[in-house]
Design a protein around this nucleic acid. Structure first.
Lengths: 153, 153
DNA sequence: TATTGTTATACTCTATAACTATA
DNA sequence: TATAGTTATAGAGTATAACAATA
């Protein structure tokens, strides 16, 4: 039954699925404003841009495997990033089904800008956590995400 | 640039928004199967059921405030739970805009079943975490979620 | 036959505005 | 005028099947 004045919105704070969802939603929302308002990107667009910016030219299948994004999402993000003139497609001589995805100078600039903002934001989020706790929490989240085991195709 | 064979899907594991999202998604997905496959519920349905089961009869506004769910979502979840015969609406004599939401015996049974499963699942998720770490981690997630400050209307 | 990538479709979730009926 | 709750609509995220082109 309802208790004191402090009893507001905390009832499910012991239930990890709920708590994770609320935290992820708030945190995503805040960072989303950067790539959405500034560049008109969706979440998958940002993730694909990140992988191309950080790891260089890749084909779609590379991104599918590295970023854990389904191929249909990657396909549509590439279409959008292409429309924004942030990437171009190059032919692969050995396999005509594939295309190398390459950032344009504008794409590189967007990546540099966003990845710097992302890094700052990340540091800010972790600021009250000690390095050893951060390591433990990260490992915990990685295991919850199944990132220590699963692969996608 | 791409490195070793272990370099798969871990590139963004240092970026907390991504990591939280992946963890929340996996964990939600697993628990979702329970309320979805067994009862045909959506996420908001389960949350509303949880609040009614745990705190007794409430009006929609109570659920909005306690569960941090927007009134339009609560409204639609109530319609669905009513269609499932899991709750009924009672008139409030003092204000005809409000209705008391009350679980039926079937609703109580669904709550008892699901909340037990939820509790077991929650314990399982935390099983490798010490109590003090769990406390710290919960506080961290609560602060990320803004649940230590914000209220909704 | 299998793989790469695309298109189509449906469902869920989120967000907001506009509305009703009551207060 | 304000509040409780409903309805409508759009955008975004997720999931899956089916497909064309190529291997």
């Amino acid at each position: 039954m309802p208790s004191g004045p402090e009893d507001t919105g905390m009832e499910m704070a012991d239930f990890l699925p709920y708590l994770l969802n609320q935290a992820a939603e708030q945190v995503s929302l805040e960072f989303q404003r950067t790539y959405k308002d500034k560049y008109g990107m969706l979440r998958t667009d940002w993730r694909v841009l990140f992988h191309l910016g950080r790891y260089g030219d890749l084909i779609a299948t590379d991104i599918v495997q590295r970023a854990r994004i389904h191929k249909t999402k990657v396909s549509r993000a590439v279409v959008r990033l292409e429309a924004m003139r942030f990437l171009v497609r190059d032919e692969v001589s050995t396999d005509r089904r594939q295309e190398i995805l390459r950032l344009t100078p504008a794409g590189e600039r967007a990546y540099a800008d966003l990845s710097r903002i992302a890094d700052d934001y990340n540091q800010k989020l972790w600021r009250n956590i000690t390095p050893s706790e951060r390591k433990r929490f990260t490992a915990f989240l990685v295991s919850l995400a199944g990132m220590d085991q699963r692969r996608r195709g």
